[in-house]
Design a protein around this nucleic acid. Structure first.
Lengths: 350, 350
DNA sequence: TTGTATGCGTTATCAA
DNA sequence: TTGATAACGCATACAA
């Protein structure tokens, strides 16, 4: 072992930063008591005299003692940490979701380890492995759904988890999702009632349950109102603004232009606005647009964006609360399947 | 100790979920070797026969062994975890920043513990305490700057940290920021060159360095071009779209309306667009707008938003990389102060 | 009321 | 090549 030397701010050992931290042992020594007396004093346990307690607390304060959550976690076999795995951290939908999760976790005094998958199966598997290796107490995940494999691994690990926003039909797991089919239906119905007959859907990747179900709702509405289905108006795989932009460009330039677009998300809808702006298409006169998620971004387009709501932040909070209740035994351990209601918010874009 | 019982999916002990995890000891027993032979085999250490190694690996595979990062962290006094503390997780600027951080951390095989402060000092202090208690190896933070107190505590802890996007004048810390003064200058200069003389600034809270410096740049440009300063055109405290919306409403309705607005961020600028839309103000004819950060959201407004760039994702990546290099001794431990260049992207809004 | 001893899962030292 | 043992920081059963 090479000797410890100081170099600028930090201590380095073998070229690695070494942080000197105050331990319980040092506090105990400083207060002149045993290590466990110190432990009891700091944790408000009974059987410690006021005088001793005061001395310990003073010493802890003076030395800047901070309990090591790691050691505690190892002792309790509990980390008070949640693994959170989402598709894309920078996507407004997910960042609002994460915000809700983090807020609720904090209320329960839990930490959040965040990972993004970019909707890639390998990344998803890695993220799950990392979360499990970190010994998280529970996992909240929006599965890529490219395969059930990753989630089966997660299931087999025995670590409690809840799916967010998406679910599997043939896998019995906890989940919190939106009522996507209903959402697809009311968005499409609204467009039909506004007089549209050529309604395109810029859908997400169809292996994702929310996309599949919104598509089902879309089809349901078309059928119910006796409209023909045109496969040329069904676009799949849109997740980002860029995706929406490209898809809208090709639709508008295409042979049979739609008069209305139902977008997978407000984010995708923003891409539609961008395309319409560039091509000089007037919304809603020449093209009506409905988004999904009712995010605040829909308020700043011109005209403002009609959207199917549903607050992602609320979904995150709900999922986190359910998971934490599950972890603390406050929630009966039957399968929790929650479908949050959706509603249509009409604004200028339709 | 009440007995362990199964209830639905998980094991519960004393009403708490108990996850059964495979330990090294069990792998060793299954392979018929000692615990440290197993450890050496799994970690590709020398001095272990091929035959033994194969047996251990097989056992680990079969039992589904996953190394416990916690125990390893305790042993090494290193968690391979970064604490990331930002103002608002759902703010597009921060979510892109976090995306960059997470990506770089992953490349270094580090995890990220994310916390938001909502720009509140108490929350910031708590977040720092939590990160330190989690024994993170380093911290990336956008300080609220409501006081130096929190950062001083962080400094005293000895845990390496880098400020992102903001910095203190009288605190010598590592930081990675944008060239905010230059950004403020070129945004204002651009508006002046477009013929504007009544230029409002919807600035962030002035205790935040980026806001203070953009303001300095704004003033510098006004002075350089011989324009008068009107305090009524200087609005402070705008961070969200909602803030931008309200400020823009009051400015437009006010006694001496500006002909141009320089917004603290694209996010704030979106609020300006919302206000303009509602009031029927035509951008850029009646009101020119420049944002900051050059996010993709500026592409979907009508007209598209001119903005001062600077990629937040790149800033996050840079800060994370510097911190990780610092932690691994790959970077000399002198104070790292980085000012990322900015440039103006002109679009339809000016 | 206080202290001693043990274990959580892992890795490192050292002896066999 | 392998194994017994100690240590990381903390909490607790148990003894004093």
């Amino acid at each position: 072992m090479t000797p410890i030397f100081k170099k600028g701010y930090y201590f380095y050992v073998d070229g690695n930063v070494h942080i000197k931290r105050v331990t319980l042992r040092e506090v105990a020594k400083a207060a002149g008591v045993s290590i466990n007396t110190a432990s009891r004093a700091l944790n408000d346990k009974p059987a410690v005299s006021p005088y001793t307690k005061a001395r310990v607390l003073e010493a802890a304060q003076r030395l800047g003692y901070r309990p090591n959550r790691l050691a505690r976690a190892l002792r309790y076999n509990k980390t008070r940490t949640l693994g959170v795995i989402v598709g894309d951290i920078a996507n407004p939908y997910f960042s609002m979701l994460v915000r809700g999760v983090e807020q609720t976790a904090r209320e329960f005094d839990y930490s959040v380890i965040l990972q993004g998958t970019d909707e890639d199966l390998e990344r998803e598997k890695e993220a799950i492995e990392v979360a499990l290796a970190e010994q998280v107490d529970g996992i909240l995940i929006t599965p890529t759904q490219r395969s059930e494999e990753a989630i089966r691994t997660l299931f087999d690990s025995g670590t409690p988890f809840i799916l967010m926003s998406r679910h599997f039909h043939d896998l019995e797991t906890h989940y919190v999702i939106m009522d996507d089919q209903r959402g697809g239906f009311i968005a499409t119905e609204h467009l039909i009632q506004r007089g549209h007959e050529r309604i395109a859907i810029l859908n997400g990747p169809i292996h994702i349950s929310s996309a599949a179900e919104r598509y089902a709702g879309y089809m349901e509405a078309l059928q119910q109102y006796g409209l023909d289905v045109d496969d040329g108006l069904v676009i799949k795989g849109c997740l980002t603004m860029e995706d929406g932009y490209r898809a809208a460009l090709s639709l508008i330039d295409g042979p049979n232009r739609p008069t209305a677009i139902f977008a997978f998300s407000d984010f995708v809808a923003l891409g539609v606005f961008r395309a319409a702006n560039e091509l000089g298409i007037v919304i809603p006169d020449e093209l009506a647009v409905v988004g999904f998620d009712n995010t605040i971004f829909g308020l700043c387009t011109r005209p403002p964006l009609s959207s199917v709501g549903g607050s992602p932040e609320e979904l995150g909070k709900t999922a986190a609360r359910f998971l934490l209740e599950l972890l603390t035994g406050k929630r009966p351990n039957t399968v929790t399947r929650v479908k949050l209601p959706v509603y249509l918010v009409q604004r200028g874009s339709t």
